[in-house]
Amino acid sequence: MAGETETPHQISLFRSQITTRRFNDESLQILESLLVFKDVKSQAETRSDLKQFLRFESLSIFQEIKYKTVYQKLSILQFFVRAFALIGDTESCLALKYEALLFRDVKSTSDQSLHVSYLEWLNFAQNLLDQGFYSIATQACEKALACFQKKDVADAKTGDFIENARVIEDIKRLKDRAMKSAASGSIQAQAAEYLKRKIVEKTRISSSFRTETKSAASTLFRNGIKKRHARELRKHQNKENALPFHSIKRTSSVCRRERLLFWRLLRALCQRVSLAKRDSFMNTCIKP
């Protein structure tokens, strides 16, 4: 509970430090204490809020410091570089660091204490490469190479040509990596865009094909049903037309059987009558 009540107070305190333009170590310590959370969700939300706050405030502050001295400007730039690094805003951190290095490089013509060494440019280029900012890394490598070549000319009397050649080779190798990565990223982006476009086209064609197929299938199905109904109707009609013929045929057959039976019965009756008459006649003849 104590941590929950302290956090809003610390956030308010840090905001107050920035709005009152106190760009010092105390403000950075307050910021660092804000990012100590056991709850990952709370930490992510706090980082997001602080990122938006610092980005918004930095725009106003950089407009305000244009009349300050070179060292004051660099001090404020360095403060925001560290602040953005603490909250995990890598993009803003590297962008401001690049601005600070360029600012020093420009001002070093009149103040050698602001000179940017080739190692600073080289380390910065490596950081950019690791974070995926390949185009800026290429520019940083070019700065490192130009800076070292100036140093090489100035130190030509030392005669350490092998070491100088090795450093130049390292810078060029890093630059080549950055350029290849940038080209690869561009190709991958183009490939991804191409694949996305092809998928959309394929989906559209497939959808159209399914619609046409569905329509054709529906038509065939309906036609099949109609044909089936027509066949059933013809079959039924043929059956009805054939029914009287079968009835007549059946009636004629029954009549013939009945007539045949009648004549058989009549014949049998006649035979019995004839036999009866014959027996009567025989009996008459036999009597004395």
Rank of each mutant, 00 (worst) to 15 (best):
R82M: 13
A144K: 04
L13P: 01
R250C: 14
H229P: 05
A156I: 15
L101F: 07
R222G: 03
E6K: 04
S60G: 12
Y98K: 13
N123G: 15
Q131Y: 06
S280Q: 10
S215P: 04
S181T: 06
L77A: 04
R197A: 08
T109F: 11
D39A: 03
D105M: 03
R173T: 07
R234C: 13
F161H: 04
G132H: 07
S58V: 12
S12I: 15
Y98V: 06
C285K: 10
A216T: 09
R256K: 05
M179S: 10
A268K: 11
S215V: 11
T251C: 11
F124V: 02
E91H: 03
Q190W: 02
R104G: 01
C270Q: 13
L101M: 07
L96S: 00
M179W: 01
K235Y: 06
L74R: 00
H236F: 13
A100F: 00
L86E: 02
R82E: 08
T213L: 08
S252Y: 03
I65A: 06
W263K: 04
E258S: 06
D49H: 07
K196L: 12
D170M: 03
S27P: 05
A165T: 09
N238M: 12
C270F: 12
I171Y: 00
L145K: 02
K172M: 13
L74G: 01
Y71T: 04
K227Y: 06
T7N: 05
Y67D: 15
K198A: 11
D89W: 00
I65M: 06
A2L: 11
A154F: 13
A100K: 00
R272F: 14
F37Y: 08
S253T: 06
K172V: 10
S208M: 09
I225E: 08
T284W: 15
F133E: 01
L31A: 02
K172Y: 14
T211E: 09
R272Q: 08
N24Y: 05
L174N: 00
I11M: 08
S247P: 02
S58E: 04
L74C: 02
A189V: 04
E91M: 04
A217P: 05
Q188C: 04
K172F: 15
F84G: 00
T7V: 14
T7C: 15
K68P: 01
W121P: 00
Q52Y: 11
Q190D: 12
L266P: 03
V106I: 14
H115C: 11
Q149N: 05
A156R: 06
G132F: 14
S181R: 02
R259L: 07
S184K: 09
F23M: 02
A276Y: 13
T251Q: 03
I11D: 02
I18D: 01
F23D: 00
K73A: 08
K97E: 05
I11F: 09
G185E: 06
R267S: 11
S207G: 12
E26I: 14
A2P: 13
I11Q: 05
S184D: 09
Q237N: 09
L265Q: 04
S113D: 13
V153D: 07
L31D: 00
Q126P: 01
S75R: 03
S58C: 14
H115L: 09
R222Q: 14
V254N: 03
A144W: 01
G159M: 14
K287L: 15
